[in-house]
Amino acid sequence: MIEVEHLSKIYGSTPAITDVTFNVEPGEILGLLGPNGAGKTTTMRILAGYLPATNGNARIAGYDVHENSLAVRQKIGYLPETPPLYPEMTVEGFLHFVAQIKGIPAGDRHQKVTAAIERCNLQDKQRVIIRKLSKGYRQRVGIAQAIVHDPPAIILDEPTVGLDPRQIIEVRNLIKSLAGTHTIILSTHILPEVSMTCSRVAIINRGKVVATNTPDNLMTQLTGGSGYEVEIEGEAALAKQVLQNIAGVSLVESIPTAGGHQAQANRAYLRVISQPGKEPGKDIATTLVRAGFGLHELRRVNATLEDVFLQLTTEEKNLEAVTQGETA
């Protein structure tokens, strides 16, 4: 549905994005994840026809973004970071206006507007003036204007920025409800949004895509998948030597505490990273007890998307193997 090939954008001598390549399958939600200034918004503006690319190609629903810009705009719904709303209009009036400028036939506008209002749960606010709405409801109106013409592809730039936790959950559920019937690109730097909303992730850093895969595959391939946190009574250095010799253990490191507890005197806190496909938890416990350490806690911890994000955005690595191993 969305194909991006070797896309670059250069402002003067400064590259905003370089050789960006990824695909989004029909009905999929792709999370474009990266730190501020990584190039997410630039990429989305090119896809929406707002900016021309310096090099590369992008196609949406079979249409080239540069050569068939008007056709592409008919196939997408776009929500920029700041929703393009007219605050003096009512929700219903604004959506009718948007439906008109998007070319929806007059006889179909009422049905399309009503459907967008219902999908975004705006029934109680449809006659309210937009400037009187909370930020969360304004964000919903922004999504409603993006989907009012029922486009096959939707581009959402930071759709939950500035919202409170309850509003984030509501907007997240709304976006998830659009999957399947719509293909969605969702940009964000908020890590929980990606793992809870997106079926696949493209991580962009310094204008380049450094990995593309499902969140689970990224966590497994880049971090080894899981490990253990250990709280013992004894010397950390000695415990690390003992644990490092266990089959299936790749790394042992000291941490401030285990399990989020307050550190106690005479206690050592360690993280044991297991090798991919290995589960040495039983051997860890047995080895520590036999070596005379007091074992107070052993808990399994799974890698998180935050671990992946930090690894990819703080280490300059070529991660083609991760991208090549992606699953659609």
Rank of each mutant, 00 (worst) to 15 (best):
L51W: 06
R166A: 08
P256V: 05
L79R: 01
A263H: 15
C120E: 06
V4Y: 12
R271A: 02
A265H: 10
P83M: 13
D164K: 00
N205K: 01
G136P: 08
A265C: 09
S199Q: 15
A38M: 07
E28R: 13
T114D: 12
V272W: 07
I29E: 06
K40D: 02
H189N: 04
Y78H: 05
T286Y: 14
G227A: 01
E88D: 15
I232C: 11
Q139V: 08
P15C: 09
N57E: 13
L32D: 05
M196A: 09
K125S: 11
N217Y: 09
A58M: 04
T287S: 11
H6L: 02
L85W: 15
G39N: 14
V148I: 03
Q100M: 14
K132H: 10
I204N: 12
G103P: 12
E233G: 10
I17H: 06
V301S: 15
I155C: 09
V308D: 00
G227E: 02
D164P: 00
A202C: 15
F97C: 06
A38V: 00
V4P: 15
Q123S: 11
T212G: 05
L32E: 08
I17R: 07
M196Q: 11
E231A: 13
T220V: 07
R73H: 14
I175P: 08
R200K: 15
E81D: 05
S199E: 13
G27L: 02
D283W: 06
Q244F: 13
P83Y: 03
N302I: 02
T188V: 03
K317Q: 15
V242Q: 13
L79V: 10
T323D: 15
V242W: 02
A328P: 04
K282Y: 05
L30A: 07
Q74R: 15
P215H: 01
H296N: 13
Q145M: 02
V98E: 10
R140I: 02
E25V: 14
D108S: 10
N217H: 09
T14I: 14
I2P: 01
G49A: 03
I76S: 08
K240Y: 00
N23K: 04
I246A: 13
I190A: 00
R119S: 09
M89P: 08
T212V: 15
T42E: 08
T114E: 13
K102G: 13
